[in-house]
Nucleic acid binder design. Structure first.
Lengths: 270, 270
DNA sequence: TTTAAAGTTGCATATAATGCAACTGTTTTT
DNA sequence: AAAAACAGTTGCATTATATGCAACTTTAAA
């Protein structure tokens, strides 16, 4: 099944930032002869998975791909179960809420419900952000066991996105460890100035971290004194969701008899 | 390029309502031997376009497909240009706003910005609804020229979704004609009880209808006397968007010197 | 007008897809 | 509990299908 395999690798080039791609660009990127690429793309186009600009002949993602992709939310049990939960969190807190998963070396928002405060498009569904500059990313990394985490940090540059982005591997490592024990990460302006975020893990069947549930809060609406109750709320909802996903236990937040009941706040130093 | 072609046809089965599909179901639906289907699906899985349930072995849409699909919005010029417009409409009216296109014999919401009033999940991005029960659908049908419309009505059953759904082909035809001349469709509870909708066309390069821009309004928040100004606002924004998409002219609403300036309201009889 | 570049198509060749049937594993029936 | 039925995957020879080169067409630049 090599034909389909190379075809899908071409399609994956459209998952990146590039808006449109030409036959030549794709052929070069994939190190394949143009004739082959041309034929494959034509077939994707015929099936609606790619569209071709009439003028420039450049290809872009097609409606069939969009429609297929939007079924992910409906068929993925986690995402499906999470939608009402996110809604409720927005209702109760007034803040935009997201559900994020790992995807390669970035985090991907698979679900987002926006609150009344306007937030930059970067937080919309389908957007990707680096691990080290987001609370969701830190929660997901903390879910990897030490070995996996070390592998990540080893060959990764912690590029600064804003002046507040953590770039020191030691500080980063310590934050991840704190997140691992407290089950929460709080970041302030690390990926966009003036924007804070709180995230907690959602656990799956074998109590591994399968997603991060988080709030995005513009600083001017972020009341410091509410932090603890927001974290408690997130933990509460993440517990519900985790149990629904088959997790045996959710060891964070107050309702559980487990460890670290109230020190959650100390998790992610500003 | 027959291998890719059959492979994509399998993938398209996941665009439908079905949440998950088994190898056997797919093989039957596509009239292909199970061995072939099994191999193709395994390859889609290896590339992340499909995921397989550990227990049931059934397939569902994968994360790669989701990520690819979400790039549609970014690379499709219309959708990309429309996002800020929708945001502005929500800000100004307080109502949820959608952008919809034709997709087979259903309409598909490719963009949606939710207002403060809770609205049923059916209006979320990626959802499909029948033409005859939605204002967006009527606008899109009105954009087809008479021949195309007749072809549609001819072999189509106007199944009732609610008691208010239009099921009489003659009434339906008249509504489409009125929509064609007025450039607006207003429906009340035709696809869900207690929910009204207003939609106007967005025109493309050759002044054909490429999308429908619409509001979804729960009846209890729908102030009758605002109807005209809502329609005017939609027309105004749709004009901006149409010009951006290369339309030479936008013949609806007040700012244009064209025809039917103020009778918009008479468009879609309740 | 000439030259260059991008994209598509024809064709002989070899590679990769095919379907059958056998095999494994899981669920249902008696 | 054993047997049967069913769902899914894999081995293998056979042939259809994808392949790359080069010629060709089309669009853009000089």
């Amino acid at each position: 099944m090599k034909t389909l395999d190379t075809a899908l690798k071409l399609l994956k080039l459209f998952e990146t930032e590039e808006q449109t791609l030409s036959v030549t660009e794709i052929a070069e990127a994939a190190a394949l002869p143009k004739s082959k690429v041309s034929r494959l793309l034509a077939d994707f186009r015929a099936n609606g998975f790619l569209e071709q600009d009439e003028q420039t002949r450049r290809y872009r993602v097609g409606l069939a791909a969009f429609e297929l992709g939007s079924n992910y939310i409906k068929s993925q049990p986690l995402a499906h179960a999470a939608l009402p939960v996110l809604r409720q969190i927005v209702d109760r807190t007034g803040h935009s809420t997201t559900l994020s998963v790992m995807r390669g070396d970035l985090i991907l928002h698979i679900l987002a419900v926006e609150g009344p405060h306007y937030i930059d498009g970067r937080w919309r569904v389908g957007n990707r952000l680096p691990f080290h500059a987001t609370s969701a990313g830190k929660v997901l990394l903390a879910g990897l066991m030490p070995a996996g985490f070390e592998a990540f940090v080893a060959n990764r540059r912690l590029d600064p996105i804003t002046p507040s982005t953590v770039t020191d591997p030691e500080v980063f490592r310590r934050q991840i460890e704190e997140t691992r024990s407290s089950g929460v990460s709080l970041t302030r302006g690390e990926s966009a100035p003036g924007l804070s975020a709180i995230a907690v893990p959602v656990l799956g069947r074998s109590n591994d971290t399968v997603a991060a549930l988080g709030l995005i809060i513009p600083d001017r609406f972020f009341a410091e004194e509410e932090t603890d109750s927001l974290i408690a709320l997130l933990h509460e909802e993440a517990r519900t969701l985790s149990i629904k996903c088959g997790a045996a236990d959710y060891p964070f937040g107050s309702a559980s008899a487990s460890h670290t009941p109230a020190l959650a706040r100390s998790a992610a130093p500003v």
